[in-house]
Simulated scan of single mutants.
Amino acid sequence: MNLRLWENPWRLTLAVNAAVLAGVFLHKITLQPYVPYIHLLVDYHFGFTKRALIGAIVSLFTAKVPVWLVFVLGGAAWLITAGLFVQLFRRTFGFEQKHLPLFVFMAGSPFFLKNFMHTLGHFDIYGCLLAIGLLLIPARSVAYVLLAALFSAILVLIHHIHLLMYVPTIAVIVVLRHYLASGMNRQNLAVGFASLIGLGALFIAAQFYGTVPVSEAEFVAHLGSRMADPSRTNLLSFGYIWYQPLAKEISDTWQRLPHNLLGVPVFALLIWLHTPLWRYLRNLIAALSVDAHRRIVTAAIIIVSLGYLVMFAIVFDYSRWVSNWAVCLMLILHAVKALPAAKEAAPIKADNRKTLVFGWIVTLIPRVGIVRPF
């Protein structure tokens, strides 16, 4: 190994992170892609259907869906997300030595790219991908608000839970990058309110009117007709989720709650290990030159967090929700960095022994999981 890597522990953590990512990928491709695969089969064959956008797009290109397409599409989304995040970090902070610890706590976090690798094929990453895109493009005109609304609508059509998962973060990015920078006028306020109303209506349509209007047996038979290998009927075992009402999802979540709450101390530990990152976010907010901006950012973080608390009460994929919440805070951090500041927030100290230990632990944790920790 290059001597320079040994002399710079933070560069070494990046090399180890790459090795851990490769290991997570090799493990992932050995697992059965139950939910990701069935999402590629569901389309608008029976009319407007929730969670069907990706499958409908796939149906435009192929009548038969192979299982390997889950990993191709999921892998492509992961690679684009990772590439855009590197570009975002380079533009926001740069890759000088002083910012390497920050990059490790973000890109090397088990909440972020490593967990997206473990959940390859799931829909979470699309919210992150589109949010990063909004952080990279100019936000000077009202067209930016319309584009954010379009991205949010796409996410709700992919899965309506995005209304709580990434749409609030996208709204925060729009407020911080457009409204606080360009000011509020009648036009952009009207577009913003209209977008919120439209997204609310789309969510209601997906949640309450997106149920398949045929029997589950007929629905599953249609999905089977789209499989490249119809013998793998075990991959259709999650067809019931297109028939499960909201009340049933909440009931299942609360029945599992006592067992799932056992993972909360682990989540708390993982969040604590990212203390240098959260401290830096706090310092960025404190350094803002406008008092109103500090209050708005603080309120935005609270609102995004409350959205995830609601998700905790509705759906029991707790490891994914905690991970995506942390990713949302990382994205908001980039938006905060672009706001006017009275002073430069001190970067994470590279020579602090405790910080380095935390960085190594974060590096070596391969993922957080889907439902329960690890």
Score class of each variant (00 low, 15 high):
A149K: 06
A149G: 10
A149F: 05
L150I: 15
L150T: 10
L150S: 10
F151S: 11
S152I: 03
S152V: 06
S152G: 01
A153K: 01
A153S: 06
I154Y: 06
L155R: 05
L157Q: 13
I158Y: 09
H159F: 03
H160Q: 14
H160G: 13
I161L: 15
I161R: 02
H162C: 07
L163G: 02
L163T: 01
L164S: 03
L164Q: 00
L164N: 05
L164Y: 14
M165A: 15
M165R: 11
V167Y: 03
V167M: 06
P168F: 01
P168M: 11
T169M: 09
T169W: 13
T169C: 12
T169Y: 09
A171S: 11
A171C: 14
A171N: 07
A171P: 04
A171W: 09
V172E: 07
I173V: 10
I173D: 03
V175F: 05
V175M: 08
V175K: 04
V175T: 11
V175P: 00
H178I: 02
Y179S: 07
Y179G: 00
Y179W: 15
L180D: 05
L180H: 01
L180G: 03
A181H: 14
A181E: 14
S182E: 15
G183A: 12
M184R: 08
N185W: 01
R186V: 15
Q187P: 01
Q187C: 14
Q187A: 15
N188H: 10
N188E: 05
N188Q: 08
N188F: 06
N188P: 08
L189I: 02
L189W: 02
L189A: 08
L189F: 04
L189Y: 00
A190W: 03
A190T: 09
V191H: 01
V191A: 13
V191P: 09
V191T: 09
V191I: 12
V191G: 00
G192Y: 07
G192I: 02
A194C: 08
A194V: 11
A194H: 02
A194Y: 10
S195C: 12
L196C: 13
I197F: 12
I197Y: 12
I197M: 06
G198A: 04
G198W: 06
L199W: 14
L199R: 08
L199C: 03
L199P: 07
G200F: 14
G200W: 14
A201C: 13
A201L: 14
A201I: 12
L202V: 11
L202F: 01
L202P: 07
F203R: 13
I204D: 10
I204Q: 10
A205H: 13
A205N: 09
A205V: 13
A205G: 07
A206M: 12
A206Y: 04
Q207M: 15
Q207L: 13
F208P: 00
Y209L: 15
Y209T: 09
G210C: 12
G210N: 10
G210L: 06
T211W: 00
V212L: 03
V212G: 14
P213C: 08
P213N: 03
P213M: 03
V214S: 05
V214A: 07
V214Q: 11
V214H: 04
V214Y: 05
S215F: 06
S215G: 10
E216G: 10
A217L: 09
A217Y: 12
A217P: 09
E218N: 15
E218S: 13
